[in-house]
Simulated assay, not measured.
Amino acid sequence: MDSEKVTVTVQSSAGEETPLLVGDAMRQILDFFELLNFAGGSEGELIAWEVISVSMNSPLTITARAVPRSSGVDATSIARREKANIAYSFSDIIKGERIPDWMNDDARDRAKSFLKRNTNGVGRTDIVLYENSKPLVINPTAAGQAFKNIERYEKSIVPIIFENDLSRVEYGSIEAKLKSLTSWYDKPAIVVKERLSKRDITCVLRPEVAHEIGKTHSWIEIWAGKRALISGRLNFQKEGRLQLVSADNIEIIDQKPKRFEDIADPDFTGGLEIRDYLNQLWGDDID
């Protein structure tokens, strides 16, 4: 069975004669494929999108195919569901009819980032979901309307008005899975998925921290989905949601399973036989 493919073309807002900025083009591609996985629901993380062709000329065009992250996963059926959800959802959002159920807070944030860039920096994004079919075209007008519709929906679902401003800064740690490299106002940064909330968080690295990490860890680890303990300044929004981390230290957590030899203590019973040790522990005669 042929694998499912998607082709995304990103054009400059200044026309075909003007090259795209690298940051705009790559973030647009990353945002779209993140949205694809969100559209797959709980099964979205079971597949990945593998690049099979790239045209680096302006406009930038990337074709990717769905591949399973592990054996036994039916990547084709998951990819088809993702593509169908994306196709219907973008149409509905642009028309202002509804926001799909699969679009949680993180997915809506990703969608707004994708759409807003289409009104400033990226002039048009063409998405071919099915071979020989017309592309789904996101132009500035459609993107602007969709962005407003998402914001209107978010205002309608806020259950209460936050009378108390919960924005604050704390110093602490979070455990998260490393996802991708990025930048934040020209500073090196990492996007991570926080373990408890499952939300994507941007961790900004001071130059000296980035340099120190580079000496002790390969940056390839970022793309390998490693778990890490990130310490530093935690910035919370007014509704109390963690928004940004200014990282002072990032410690990669060893994910290798422990061997019995690594944790066994041969002197655990102090030299006693098991029966004698249990008798001493419980104060009874164990038969």
Rank of each mutant, 00 (worst) to 15 (best):
S3A: 15
T7Y: 13
T7C: 13
V8H: 15
T9K: 12
S13G: 13
G15D: 11
D24L: 07
A25Y: 08
Q28Y: 04
D31A: 12
F32P: 07
F38M: 07
F38C: 06
G40H: 09
G44D: 07
G44V: 04
W49E: 01
V51Y: 11
V51P: 05
V54H: 12
M56Q: 11
N57M: 10
L60T: 09
L60Q: 12
R69S: 00
I78H: 02
A79D: 01
A79C: 11
N85F: 01
I86A: 03
A87L: 13
A87M: 12
S91L: 03
K95T: 10
I99Q: 11
W102K: 08
A111T: 05
L115Y: 09
L115S: 14
R124L: 00
T125P: 06
I127A: 04
V128I: 14
V128R: 14
Y130W: 13
P135C: 05
L136V: 11
L136Q: 07
L136T: 06
A142T: 02
I161C: 05
E175S: 07
K177D: 03
Y185V: 13
V192G: 03
K198P: 00
V204A: 01
R206K: 13
P207S: 01
H211F: 03
K215V: 01
I222G: 06
A224E: 04
K226M: 00
G240P: 04
V245E: 00
S246R: 13
A247N: 08
E251S: 08
I252H: 12
I252C: 10
K256Y: 06
R259C: 05
A264S: 05
R275E: 00
D287Y: 08
